[in-house]
Amino acid sequence: MTMEGIPQYSQYPNYPYMYPPATAPQPAADQPTKPVGRPRLYALIVGVIFTILIVAAIALAAYSPSLAPTESGAIPRGWTKVYDANLTAGDDGRWDQSQGCAFGSSGLNADASSSSNAALCAFKPSETQDLASGGFLLEMTLTPAANITSEAVPLIVLGSDTSGAVFVFADQQGNYTICQANCDTATRQGVLESGSTATWHGDPYVANTFAVQFVQQGLNNNPTITLFINGEQVAQIDVSQAINVSAGAAIPFGVGSLSGGAEVYTHATLYTGGVSSL
């Protein structure tokens, strides 16, 4: 009966008396407990919840496009496709190339990267025909951003000096702006609407489509512009304060790029309600 280093005496069984622990035993909060079976149950619950969440998230993501207004649904019955051109095929004579635009193998190139003015490529038929009074929808397909050396800035312009003009443009991150002529995005002077959209392809190797619909009696029976990106409605605003449709003048439109940016358009499609052919 010898303990470590301490002699034991059979006569004195209680010698040496060892004091009980000075610190009352308490659960060691630092150390993980090991409840048998429960960790597995916990892990199982976490796994099941994770699985349910992922399956539900996939289902929601698959279903959500059907909830958003689309471009195809916005084309009224009676409108006709009057122009559908592959711009990579070369100049078809429909686009003005006098203000910074030029056709190339990649399409209609609007380059204002080294200019203090925007590059504008007016759609010539809109200058000679009234395509706006019956409403129209112009859809432009953009080249992937990776094909452009400077910042890609698509632009659709609607109107003129006499009627007033509206600029619709976006940047490579999917931030769009709708504003009047001579607007200032820094101070937001003249900005009618701006925002960002999840429908924009942020991958620089994926092309986007950029479409604007104009109707004279839209919201509140006023001239209204609707912006679609990749077929999905992004914004819809009343532009009566920017465009005067009662002036009787034609409302021309075109594409281009803002100062400091560039854009290449590879395809163009036009639907109108006023004319059946150009």
Binding site: L60, A61, Y63, T197
Partner: peptide, 11 residues
């Protein structure tokens, strides 16, 4: 179409 932000956010 790509769908709405709220729709794809969970995934």
């Amino acid at each position: 179409t790509p769908g709405t932000a709220l729709g794809v956010l969970p995934l």
